[in-house]
Design a protein around this nucleic acid. Structure first.
Length: 458
RNA sequence: GGCCGGAUGGCAGAGUGGCUAUGCAGAGGACUGCAAAUCCUCGUACAGCGGUUCGAUUCCGCUUCCGGCCUCCA
């Protein structure tokens, strides 16, 4: 079954065909490291992690190259460092470290390359020089600006005409711009802010050119997939396309553009500027990363949804059910790499993760009903294999259900006491023990064969 | 103002021109000493109004409402 992706460039679902199946290339706009990432930031991280895993599954782990940049040059970074009274370097390092911890907790694989803007000043300058030489950019009052009129295709990607952009412009236009739509490639930096020597004096790059230069370095002029949040379509991705195609003599830039919708909180877009963010860190204090991940994948990536406690509760409940079923077949080894067709087809259809989860539930139901040992093995293998693509169900079920506490021995003792009481038909005592444990958050399940399992309530 | 994208049962959430997913919650049942877990059964929902059609939740138009972009933004 082919892989279909919704391509923002054409506004249609298209069959994905890589330029080179032995080198499938994807670029995703990553994080600007000035503040702790929130669940809205987490969405593309998780969505494109699933796509990365799916591509690896289809084309082989060694044949997929996933580049996710870190923006460590930015006005917001400068402002935040100043406000914190810390150095810019300290701020970006500290934030990047926390970012990596958060992303790892969400079970996201490490991208093939995580380029930083500060490490690509050379290529950025080179690309700007190319654009100036080909009259797509000009120098004015210490700035280098991209000339929008020099690119007849400018605006096509995001579907807006130049007139519209001018009419809609809400920002004061800098007097040195030849056209109100022109955007900065390089701007001067005062001595107290980060800056690099360039043919245009000491300065720093604009945001858009960073991504154009980094994708060029790590993926080449033309590559397969470019991802990011919907809000990046304009101006960021429109500008990237303009810069890259103009710098590369008209060669196409990314072939498939994939954009995720927003996470909302209280009915509107979760954003720092709105002030309604739940940081990944906050969420992780309440639920395991795997639950947050599951909750994220309950909706299709192109649909917005509200981040609520009900949602994470439902995600946790679902994962508990999966792990409970896996625990019951823990003692036998399942075959590996038996990917269930239903789940894979859902994912291959434009990453339909909700449908994939439905398919996963069907397998769960079948596993719970299965009597035949062989059948159980097969279904367990399917759950685990699907879990490698979705990025969950890879933990030890016992650990998931019981937690890391050190009271296991004591609980076992109480369970044995209860079993003895039950054997003596002393149900009062048996129920007393069960209640005692329940108060401590320990739930008991009497299994057939006289065995009693326990797990931690949530 | 311009341009996108949505509106599905109590909640979450797929999908389809006719056979009406799935999960949670709820009701009943099986199992259990009782529970829990698990299994079985149960809900004819697709914003409104027109149109196309033998037939529309699914296609088209309009209306209403919601979210987003047009400025930093995942």
């Amino acid at each position: 079954m082919p892989l279909a992706l919704h391509n923002t460039a054409t506004r249609r679902k298209e069959i994905f065909e890589p330029i080179d199946p032995t080198n499938v290339r994807m670029y995703v706009c990553g994080s600007t490291v000035y503040a702790p990432p929130h669940m809205g930031n987490a969405r593309p991280l998780i969505v494109f992690d699933v796509l990365f895993r799916l591509l690896r599954h289809r084309y082989g782990e060694r044949h997929v190259r996933y580049v996710r940049n870190i923006t460590d040059i930015d006005d917001k970074i400068n402002a935040a460092a100043k406000a914190n009274g810390e150095s810019i370097r300290d701020l970006t390092e500290r934030t990047a470290r926390a970012f990596h911890e958060d992303v790892a907790a969400l079970n996201c694989l490490t991208p093939t390359v995580e380029p930083r803007a500060t490490e690509h000043i050379g290529p950025i300058i080179k690309m700007i020089e190319t654009l100036i030489a080909s009259h797509h950019a000009y120098f004015a009052e210490g700035h280098v600006l991209f000339s929008v009129v020099s690119d007849p295709d400018y605006g096509k990607f995001s579907g807006r005409s130049r007139d519209e952009m001018i009419a809609g412009a809400r920002v004061d236009v800098a007097p040195y711009k030849r056209d109100p739509g022109d955007f900065v490639l390089w701007k001067p930096s005062p001595p107290d802010l980060p800056g690099w020597d360039s043919p245009w004096g000491r300065g720093r790059p604009g945001w858009h050119i960073e991504c154009s230069a980094m994708s060029e370095v790590h993926l080449g002029d033309t590559f397969d997939i470019h991802g990011g949040g919907l809000d990046l379509i304009f101006p960021h991705h429109e500008n990237e396309i303009a810069q890259s195609t103009c710098a590369h003599g008209g060669k196409p830039f990314a072939r498939y553009w994939v954009h995720n919708a927003f996470v909302e909180f209280g009915g509107e877009k979760m954003a720092k500027s709105v002030g309604n963010v739940r940081t990944i860190r906050e969420v992780l204090t309440e639920v395991p990363g795997e639950v947050a991940r599951y909750a994220m994948l309950m909706s299709h990536y192109r649909d917005p949804f509200d981040w609520t406690e009900e949602r994470t509760a439902q995600a946790r409940h679902a994962l508990d059910r999966f792990y409970r079923a896996l625990r019951d077949v823990e003692d036998f080894t399942a075959p590996e790499n038996v990917f269930p067709v239903t789940v894979m087809q859902a994912l291959e259809d434009d990453l339909n993760t909700p449908l994939a989860l439905t398919a996963l539930h069907a397998i769960l139901g079948a596993l719970n009903q299965a009597i035949d040992r062989h059948e159980k093995l097969r279904l367990k293998g399917q759950l685990l294999a699907a879990g490698t693509v979705l990025g969950f169900l890879q933990q030890d079920p016992e650990t998931w259900l019981k937690g890391a506490g050190d009271e296991a021995a004591e609980i076992e003792t109480l369970i044995q006491q209860r079993l003895a009481a039950r054997k003596d038909k002393n149900f009062t005592e048996a129920d007393r023990i069960r209640t005692e444990l329940a108060i401590r958050g320990i739930l008991l399940e009497d299994k057939p064969g006289g065995k009693t399992e326990w797990r931690r309530a949530v």
